[in-house]
Design a binder for these strands. Structure first.
Lengths: 116, 116
DNA sequence: AAATATGTGTAGTATATAGTACACATGACA
DNA sequence: TGTCATGTGTACTATATACTACACATATTT
């Protein structure tokens, strides 16, 4: 499923319960032209900027990181974190590439309970 | 220290021992015009593409991830890894933002010795 | 039936990215 | 001292990114 298809699907779902989720009204709220949002949803143009994707995520109640990923992007705040300690993060992320989900979850939890 | 300054410094250091590290010769080996490399080193233009940065890293014996970071970029292979599991990685990386270096190293080691 | 809202086609724009091509003054060196 | 290499100034260029503006046919609502 492409970024556009995903957006259209979720916007339409909301629209069926609330007509404030038309292309025009959502476009207005996120600050783009309706024709542009229409083209995005149909994959006629590339996904929009990170800022617009975030606005869209907020509007549709979706996870910004997931939408950004579907758009082929990575949040700039994550990039910032990596860029501050490139060797450590690059090494770690490559190690974690093949780790199963539960391992990532466990590490996140361990770190949150921070006992280093 | 900027990207350009860093490149210039390290290229000059190599040049002092081996005159094959002139702007012109390095430029030729990494596949750009000498004037362009000169401008990069003086910060007259933005850092080059990821591909050229990698070639430069190889040429100068530097860590590509570090050079990319100085250029304000994050390796596309790392972005790929994150984009495949955006929620897990976004959460984890944000958790790790404030973790000390030795914690990141320990996690990387634990994962490498993979016992999950 | 009239007014209004909706989605979309076409055309165009501004800015950023990632460079090339050529010329020229200076410096090294044989 | 003539040749060759070096670094750099100026002037372009091609492609990508991120949109806007307007018009129009088709619903939907009043």
């Amino acid at each position: 499923m492409t970024f556009g298809e995903y957006i259209r699907e979720h916007r339409e779902a909301l629209k069926s319960e609330d007509r404030r989720f038309s292309v025009r009204q959502v476009a207005q709220r996120i600050g783009v032209e309706p024709a542009y949002l229409s083209k995005i949803e149909r994959g006629d143009v590339a996904p929009p900027s990170e800022a617009k994707i975030r606005a869209l995520a907020e509007e549709l109640g979706e996870d910004p990181d997931v939408l950004l990923a579907m758009a082929g992007k990575v949040s700039t705040d994550l990039q910032e974190i990596i860029r501050k300690r490139p060797q450590l993060f690059a090494d770690l992320i490559r190690q974690l590439k093949s780790a199963p989900d539960h391992a990532l979850l466990r590490i996140a939890r361990d770190v949150r309970d921070g006992d280093w």
